[in-house]
Design a binder for these strands. Structure first.
Lengths: 256, 256
DNA sequence: AAAAAATGCGTAATTTTAACACAATGCAAC
DNA sequence: GTTGCATTGTGTTAAAATTACGCATTTTTT
């Protein structure tokens, strides 16, 4: 066995490697599908498999004259997640939320690695020719979840334990919808009521009565209406009204 | 400057230290207050201040003949949290849930440290003489939260950033109550309807009509009734009925 | 023992949700 | 361009859930 590179950063006790991964949700207006952004891995392990964008936490440190690590600067885990997203997918993500950590022993074959997982909501740009990151791909969420669900025991679709992370992110997104109108963060500034409803239906996997849904949304008062060229009406989130509405604390009634 | 201990575990890149902390919730039947278990720190930093129980993640590793770290066994973060709780408070915690990570640069003056925070629900043993851990203390949550809220800017009540963690844990507990009957995990096996209501009121900081609350709970079908010596009735969670009820997915209506 | 508080059991008014009707508009095929 | 069909905006009504409150009785307090 060789020893090609000498480890430089030494500690009194062993430490795990720390990474972030992120489930990026987007709503494709064209086919009205909720999608997630996956990266095809170019290196081992899991080369060629799809995975969530993510990577190692960055710490700037130097070694002093006693051989001790002197830490100079570090990023928070959230910063790390945002930086990795920018690097791997080109997205400057604003709406990003922590999902949880994954730390099962053996989850990364290289070394003991814990990951802090996030989920982010972005608006899919209309029919982009190709992604900044050549290997990034929008995949319908239902396809991913179905593939995962129907896999024989012990097999995985995505790299590492990312199957679990995607599944958990979807559940969290559904729950979070009870407390915050996250859905709006997946849409362009203005949207039709039908689009909004289709989005809620896609996330919650449940159909709503068109008229009752519209009434609930409008009664909440958080939407401003704008006429269009045709007879149809477009809507836009009124942030002030929304903040007030959130304080009143009855958003759960929107859905449940 | 001295170099008393030689760092043994070396890596190619700097790594953060990883810890877990836990907010332990308990409901004190005696005074009907929701309380959290705090530890008085015996060592620097923050010596003498109250803090959440927690500690460093444990990894077993050795150094091979090339000076490389060979990892042999590690615990998950959840295991770490449970182990630290057992060590520091004597509690064998069953109901423990992840809250989130804290990783702001500088949050630990010793070194770059990220913490994975948990919250746990236990039943406070009736009038225990003294805690296993001499420095552990049950403190009413409202006292902690009020102290934190009224602190001048920049000052903290608890050690590290534990003020934030406790506050976040309370919010999460409130939200989680919409999806799971976590409250029962804070009570002894059997309890009166009034106790249950007081608990919900303590967690949600909101009063319920005695009669309406009882009806909602009983209508849900998840409680079995048991007569007592007096005219009063005690109740007990029916786990099967509850699991069924959870699938039906209308627990949010209990509260909202 | 009297007063006060807590308990069990109930009803009615109100609000919220769910189910459905219908006319007008946009769109595609012919 | 007109015919058929899906979509949109506007409404009504029945059912269900929530809220507010009464009252006799038991338990606790003073």
């Amino acid at each position: 066995m060789e020893n090609p590179v000498r480890p430089r950063f030494g500690y009194l006790y062993p430490r795990p490697a720390v990474t972030t991964d992120c489930v990026i949700f987007g709503f494709d207006i064209a086919d009205e599908l909720l999608k997630v952004l996956l990266i095809e891995r170019g290196i081992e392990p899991y080369k060629g498999r799809y995975a969530l964008p993510g990577g190692f936490m960055q710490i700037d440190a130097r070694i002093n004259e006693f051989g001790l690590v002197v830490e100079e600067r570090n990023e928070s885990l959230l910063d790390c997640a945002k930086r990795e997203l920018k690097e791997e997918t080109g997205f400057d993500v604003q709406n990003i939320y922590e999902l949880g950590t994954w730390s099962t022993p053996g989850r990364d074959p290289r070394c003991i690695t814990i990951t802090d997982a996030y989920y982010a909501l972005v608006t899919i740009q209309p029919v982009r020719g190709g992604d900044d990151a050549a290997d990034a791909k929008w995949v319908p969420l239902y396809q991913v979840l179905n593939t995962i669900k129907n896999l024989p025991d012990g097999l995985r679709f995505l790299a590492f334990d990312h199957d679990e992370i995607v599944t958990a992110a979807h559940v969290r997104l559904q729950q979070q919808l009870c407390f915050e109108p996250l859905a709006f963060k997946l849409l362009p500034k203005r949207f039709s009521m039908t689009t909004l409803r289709r989005l809620y239906e896609a996330i919650l996997e449940k159909n709503f009565d068109r008229r009752n849904f519209a009434r609930k949304m409008l009664d909440s008062g958080i939407l401003d209406a704008f006429p269009t060229e045709s007879r149809n009406i477009n809507y836009q989130l009124n942030l002030e009204k929304y903040e007030e509405f959130k304080r009143t604390g009855r958003l759960s009634n929107l859905i449940f």
